[in-house]
C-alpha cells in the first residue's frame, strides 16, 4: 500500500470505526433482534419472520401506518406554506426581518416546551377555544377527539418547524439571479407569473430537498410532541411508528417486536434516502 493510501486510511479510520460501532452494528443487532421473541432483558429465541407477520395483523401498527400516510399527505402544506412566506419576505414585504426571526423562533424550542405551550392553548378551556367562542364557534376538544387530534398535532409540529424550511427557502431565493427576475418583469411577468414560471422552477432542487428532509423529519422527530400532547391517543389516532416502537419497547417490554417495527421504519427511511440521492444526482446533471 502506498504511503498516500496509508495516510488516507489513517484519516478515514476514526470515522469508519465510529460508524461501524454506533450505526452498522446496532442495525445488524436490531435486524437480528427483530427475528426473535425477546422480552424484557431475556435474549429470546429465533422465530423467523413471525414478528413481521404479527405486524401485518397488528391494528396499532396498521393505524400508525395509516396515520403516517395521512401525515405524508399533508407534505404539500409543509413545503408550500414556508415557500410562500419566504417568497413574500424575499420580495421585501414591510417587516420582513421581523417575520423571519419570529417564524424561526419556534425551531429553537424543544418539542417538550412546544408541547407544553400547546397543551395549555388547545385544552377544552384553553385560549384557542376561548378565541373561537368570541366568533361564535363551539369549543372543540382538539387533542381529546380522534377526529382532530392528529391534525392538531400536525398543525403544532408545522408551527414548530416551518421556520427552518423558510430559512432554507430564503437562502435558495437569494441564489436566484436578480437579472433573471428583472428580465421576466420586462417580459411582462406579474408577481404570480414570477412565482410560477421563474422562482419555483429555479428553486426546484431546494423544494425537493425540503420535501425529503421534512418527510424524514416528521417521521422521526415527532415523538416528543406526541408524548407530551396526546401519548399516541385517543386510542391510536396519533400513534406513529416511532411512538409505537417506544410503546412496545419501553412499556410492553417487547424489544424483538419493537425491533421489527424499527426495521420497517428503517426501510421506509432508506427508501426516502434513496429518493433523495436520486433527486440530488438528477439536479447535479442539470
Amino acid at each position: 500500500m502506498s504511503p498516500e493510501r496509508r495516510t488516507a486510511w489513517a484519516f478515514l479510520a476514526p470515522s469508519l470505526v465510529l460508524i461501524a460501532i454506533f450505526r452498522i452494528a446496532p442495525l445488524i443487532w436490531g435486524a437480528q433482534l427483530s427475528l426473535t421473541d425477546a422480552r424484557g432483558i431475556t435474549p429470546g429465541a429465533f422465530i423467523g419472520l413471525e414478528n413481521y407477520r404479527e405486524l401485518a395483523f397488528d391494528p396499532a401498527f396498521r393505524d400508525s401506518i395509516s396515520n403516517t400516510i395521512l401525515l405524508i399527505a399533508t407534505l404539500p402544506v409543509w413545503v408550500c406554506f414556508p415557500l410562500l412566506l419566504a417568497i413574500l419576505i424575499h420580495q421585501g414585504v414591510p417587516g420582513g426581518r421581523f417575520y423571519r426571526a419570529t417564524y424561526f423562533f419556534p425551531a429553537i424550542l424543544s418539542s417538550v416546551i412546544v408541547g407544553s405551550i400547546f397543551n395549555t392553548l388547545l385544552r377544552r378551556d384553553g385560549a384557542v377555544n376561548a378565541a373561537l367562542k368570541l366568533v361564535g364557534i363551539a369549543p372543540t376538544d382538539w387533542l381529546g377527539s380522534s377526529h382532530t387530534a392528529l391534525l392538531s398535532l400536525i398543525a403544532v409540529q408545522l408551527w414548530a418547524t416551518f421556520g427552518m424550511s423558510l430559512l432554507i427557502f430564503l437562502a435558495g431565493l437569494s441564489t436566484v439571479p436578480q437579472d433573471m427576475i428583472e428580465a421576466a418583469r420586462l417580459d411582462g411577468a406579474r408577481l404570480r407569473h414570477l412565482v410560477w414560471f421563474i422562482i419555483i422552477p429555479a428553486l426546484r432542487p431546494i423544494i425537493e430537498f425540503v420535501a425529503v428532509v421534512t418527510t424524514i423529519g416528521i417521521l422521526t422527530s415527532m415523538f416528543g410532541l406526541i408524548y407530551v400532547l396526546t401519548a399516541g391517543g385517543p386510542g391510536t389516532s396519533t400513534t406513529l411508528p416511532e411512538f409505537l416502537i417506544w410503546l412496545e419497547l419501553g412499556k410492553l417490554n417487547r424489544p424483538g417486536y419493537a425491533a421489527a417495527i424499527s426495521m420497517v421504519l428503517f426501510a421506509l427511511m432508506a427508501g426516502l434516502a434513496w429518493a433523495q440521492i436520486r433527486i440530488m444526482q438528477r439536479n447535479a446533471d442539470v
Binding site: 433573471m180 428583472e182 428580465a183 420586462l186 411582462g188 406579474r190 429555479a202
Partner: peptide, 17 residues
C-alpha cells in the same frame, strides 16, 4: 417595466435556464 413597451438585453444574458 412591463407597461413601458421596452425590451432589455442584459450583460449576463439573464436567460431562463
Amino acid at each position: 417595466p412591463y407597461d413601458r413597451h421596452i425590451a432589455m438585453v442584459f450583460q449576463s444574458y439573464a436567460l431562463y435556464p
